[in-house]
Design a protein around this nucleic acid. Structure first.
Lengths: 202, 202
DNA sequence: CGAAAAATGGACCAGCAAGTCCAGAAATCC
DNA sequence: GGATTTCTGGACTTGCTGGTCCATTTTTCG
């Protein structure tokens, strides 16, 4: 936005976004006020509006961007090296672990319900995230094909899309029910599906 | 709750729930006020609180129950007769169609973000819905096994859980991006997974 | 028909949370 | 070092929304 910021300014802005992300993860968007964020980040009202002139929505969008980055970052380096069965397994464990840890509020999901997904920018964030994520999964599957572990006939893009959907749904269900069974089932069945398509299949 | 209701009373209550469900589907929970619901249902404030003494949350919960019932009902009769490949395919089409129609607000997802999933009752509704849904999928898979179309060795419960997760995630992604590719991929890959496990497999 | 209970209309209240404003402190820059 | 810009503090405003209250109408039922 405005480029005229000092070091201190950038630091404050970052502090606000990170602090807001924490609060939102703990309380959920619907129950978080600007004063909660103020409290957590040790800032004043004017600071909030100084860095996010358009108000709460702009701040929430910034948090969404922040959280979206975290999602993929938390899966690295495994997500980037899905070229053997072991690496897939390791990645699976990291995903399960990450989402079991993360309280029971999905920051991204709720963020978009609040901001409204039509907002320019809002939709783009999710779309981009999904695109990246699916791309990395597909790359991993192609690596398996290259290494002769999976049939070259496999429709990688479709299976990657399905796996991604399974993860999303698994997380959603976990958020609602508190049970990670579905997430694990989606991951394991997804990987099984790859295993069930060996290159020497009839 | 209170049993002393007249025919008119029941009708009004139902009108409120159904009208509220409509508005919520269109605008999303975060942007819907009691006055919106009043407007749509042609009721007064006092009626709202007469039928839902605990206020908005109680009303939202009633809507959630209503929507949860609709979810499974909309998939019938197909969901109840998943005993052949054709019936699975038909069911798949119905699911895709249903969710493509339904605007871009998932009533249930947003409802719980607002009410808070810890509320007694809230969690139960989702859990119960997922349980029923998964149960029907598993029953269908067992029917396939019985009919000699799928290996009896298949871990039906896990695969059903994974398929359910895929559907949820597919819907979630569609809500955010407006694209039903993932939902279709999840359904098709899920069914493929069944097809890939014939009873005469080595 | 008449009393009691249920249903309805709508004015009113209260609190909260987003957003505004301006004065003052700190940094930047020439 | 002084002017200018950025940053910060916090009191204040304002609109909205959930919720209350009571008077009135309608229904029920003996």
């Amino acid at each position: 936005m405005s480029e005229a910021v000092t070091v201190k300014g950038r630091a404050t802005r970052a502090r606000i976004v990170e602090g807001a992300a924490e609060v939102l993860r703990e309380q959920g968007v619907a129950f978080t006020t600007l004063d909660d964020i103020r409290g957590r980040t040790g800032t004043s009202k004017s600071q909030l509006f100084h860095y996010f002139p358009a108000g709460k929505d702009e701040l929430l969008l910034a948090v969404a961007r922040f959280e979206a980055d975290r999602v993929l970052a938390d899966q690295q380096p495994h997500l980037g090296r899905l070229d053997s069965w072991e690496s897939w397994q390791q990645w699976r464990d990291v995903v399960v672990d990450r989402y079991e840890r993360q309280g029971d509020h999905c920051p991204l999901a709720s963020l978009f319900l609040q901001v409204g997904r039509d907002r320019p920018g809002a939709r783009a964030i999710v779309t981009e995230l999904m695109h990246q994520w699916q791309g990395q999964l597909a790359r991993g599957m192609r690596a398996l094909q290259k290494n002769g572990l999976v049939s070259p006939a496999l429709d990688v893009d479709r299976v990657a899309a399905a796996l991604l959907a399974g993860i999303q749904g698994g997380v959603t269900i976990m958020m609602s029910t508190g049970d990670s069974t579905h997430l694990k089932a989606a991951l394991d069945t997804g990987i099984d599906h790859l295993r069930a398509a060996p290159p020497d299949a009839a």
